[in-house]
Design a protein around this nucleic acid. Sequence first.
DNA 1: TATTTGATTCTT
DNA 2: AGAATCAAATAT
Length: 182
Amino acid sequence: MKKILQQIFFDRPTLIIAQELLGKFLVRKSGKKEIAGMITETEAYIGLEDKASHASRGRTKRTEVMFGNPGYWYVYLVYGMYNCLNIVTERERYPAAILIRSVCLLPFHYDRQNMAVNGPGRVCKYFQVDKRFNKRPAELKTGLWIEDRGVRLNPKKIKKGKRVGVDYARSWKNKHWRFYLE
DNA sequence: TATTTGATTCTT
DNA sequence: AGAATCAAATAT
């Protein structure tokens, strides 16, 4: 069973979605080639108050997609080198998104050496995601979407921790808004 | 207009 | 521990 997650899935509380995305599949299709991997690590960035979120500094050309409708991709360049892939969540005008940090590749795609793709920069590199996908909807015709393939996780398998690389975010850096599988 | 800084990763 | 490398935020 394969079911593409629709926009309504993302129009809900971000912390719920960030956990539910674990076990879902990120799918990239260009031409006949399809790459798919199970999402194993996410981070939530929520609201104007969250000092770790780009949206906390207000609505800019870069962050406006976070203020828009849910179910859209937010792709940005960090450290001048790496792209980061996020899915926008919650209602229009409420800025929130989830960073996809790691995935686990299907056997068809890996050679044991690199079955895990750890780190947002590596996820984008492997799935050939760049700013072309920014502000585009997560759906089939975009060539990049998220699927439910029937994997059901025991909620106890979900680990929580502090978000990575946000030491500058004052008290918000201590929020346990990072979710991952062992 | 100039400087600083990152939701990172790779090399030394 | 440091480099790579640039868009956006902040300082001047």
